[in-house]
Design a protein around this nucleic acid. Structure first.
Lengths: 343, 343
DNA sequence: TCTGTATAGTAAACCGTTTTACCTTTTTTA
DNA sequence: TAAAAAAGGTAAAACGGTTTACTATACAGA
């Protein structure tokens, strides 16, 4: 591969001059400049970033750490980051911890996680990244990010027990408020909830949103209209049965998989979603369009989370950490209306 | 950040000695070695890879280029690559061309694609990656990879018109053979196919596999049992209607989305998949488990494609291009049996 | 004519490593 | 005991760029 030195020799100038031309400095004559540019193209010169970055101490590289790239929401966030950075000339180092694949839910391996995260962060430090975006996958609040890491860090999809790391999450409370309100607006006053794991922060906040919507409509909250579905279909079917026994007219399921449980239960009972029952899901996974009738659901703003995280990162990189105003950004979900609501 | 030089000064030795210790060279006394190691840890020394790689001319970095990270099959392939490389100490530069997001199917932008790919490849060249794995997404045969690129290149999920670039794909023909055979074994002799776009190489090869299975069972091939579903649900519903009019007893749909069309059509006609009709899909997307009854389908060996591509890459890196035996690896799919086949 | 200021260009230091060639000192071997 | 070999260590060049400080020439204005 051609170097700056070879170009210099070929043009009979010093390497400084070549460097100046290649970096659009102004102190070079028009003809020399042209000659250098031409030979550079001719020799198909490509700068060696190892050399460049060594001197410049900035790599224009962002590290992206994912807990598990194959989790349904992850790729879209990464894509959002890419989208934002597209015209900024950065490259990306991808770290994929494979946490869930490796330690498959046995139990919550806090120490193991912490060690993995540490290792990956240091790897990226060695590779001199300018900043790191960490994408959480499941846990909303993360406690295994080290304090005082010397490289700018931004969290996406999760936030951190360390409060001064900027984080971008979606607004669980507001999303549940919107979903519930939509059901109320459609004439429902007895609205069941199939909740995720009750200890999860996601679940708790969504229940708050649900309560707020009920409150705003003057509907009393009833504890037994909330049933735990534990994020999976099997438990959701049980939860659905309980709710139907309570004679709810609508169900808010906290993810699309659990909404699938409602389809299944109602099919068994010869009832039809969208006719006998209103249903709203959460996530807007691919399945939402496969159900029959198609599922109205809250779309996670994954792409926007990625973009926002990227925006914050570049802001920090260009203007310093102090320039950003707040440390927790909440992005709203969007209700995707399909056929699981009565007309 | 601490450098080798500072460690040298702190220990009163030369930087060569520090370097030797840090790289496990043998010509250093035990006590000096220990002292250096200790102070390195104490100063939390992390090597600067820009400097290291500049000298070594190898970066232990692999470029991964994806056409569109959010396409359903992409993340899993990347994950497979990561899995294989996990213990080899490599890092990954991720390029996400966002081809389909950016040029949203308007038409097939060959020149635009080519330019994007070229740009990305050169970016990675500048960053001195040791090798590049290119993940195709839709097109099985790719014609926009430049000839004679100076860095080792491996293709995953697609292969290349340039025959000496090693490629890893799944075996379409064999997969269709397996699927069709399973349907035959289940007692079907009149098996309809809802095909993808007929011009697609995927479709063509799968039709070959279908024919071979029929041939092996002595069932005559009938042209009108193949209906084009064009990879989408709407067209699949029409295709399904035509096939049902032909009184098929089983359908092989070339993806899970089109299989969804069969569920929808049969539901309208008060028929039931898995009772009145056998159905096999393709891809094993998340939806396959959401259908009712759940869908038997061919699982794409995405993770294995990634792992194999990674294996080939490391082989080339360590033993040279000549060491690999063949340039096109076909990996088999796996039939995932669920409830859409009659017992 | 002298001074001052652009303009065009260069030499050399530097970034943080690795590595080659070399130098001492000590130990082994004949 | 002398020569050879081993052990422990170092100086300096190199990797491919950027940047600072400097030089030489040309030209303008007084």
């Amino acid at each position: 591969m051609a170097t700056i030195k070879e170009i210099a020799k070929a043009c009979g100038v010093s390497i400084s001059t070549v460097s100046n031309v290649l970096n659009n400095k102004s102190n070079v004559g028009e003809d020399t400049r042209k000659k250098i540019l031409d030979t550079a193209k001719e020799m198909s010169y490509i700068p060696n970033y190892m050399a460049k970055n060594l001197k410049l101490k900035t790599t224009k590289t962002i590290g992206i750490i994912t807990e598990d790239l194959t989790v349904f929401n992850c790729a879209e966030i990464v894509d959002g980051i890419h989208e934002f950075f597209d015209e900024h000339g950065y490259t990306f180092l991808l770290g994929n911890l494979r946490l869930y694949k490796k330690y498959d839910n046995e139990f919550y391996h806090k120490d193991v996680y912490k060690k993995q995260v540490d290792t990956e962060l240091n790897k990226m430090k060695a590779k001199q990244v300018d900043g790191i975006i960490y994408i959480g996958a499941h846990c909303r609040k993360i406690n295994y990010i080290p304090q005082g890491f010397p490289i700018p860090l931004v969290l996406a999809y999760s936030f951190c027990s360390n409060p001064d790391i900027p984080s971008v999450i979606f607004d669980d409370e507001e999303a549940a408020y919107q979903a519930t309100s939509a059901l109320i607006k459609n004439g429902n006053r007895k609205i069941g909830v199939i909740a995720g794991e009750l200890s999860s922060l996601h679940t708790k906040e969504r229940i708050n949103g649900y309560k707020r919507a009920l409150g705003d409509a003057g509907i009393p909250f009833r504890r037994n209209l909330i049933q735990e579905g534990n994020w999976n279909k099997a438990q959701s079917i049980c939860a659905c049965k309980t709710l139907m026994d309570e004679a709810v007219t609508a169900i808010f399921a906290m993810n699309d998989i659990m909404a699938g449980g409602v389809y299944e239960f109602t099919a068994r009972e010869e009832l039809k979603v969208g006719t006998d029952l209103d249903l709203i899901g959460f996530d807007n996974r691919e399945v939402a369009q496969a159900y029959n009738p198609t599922l109205t659901t809250m779309k996670l703003p994954l792409n926007r989370i990625g973009r926002k995280a990227a925006e914050i990162m570049i802001n920090i990189l260009e203007n310093g950490k102090e320039s950003i105003q707040k440390d927790l950004y909440k992005i709203n979900c969007e209700l995707i209306i399909r056929d699981s609501l009565r007309k």
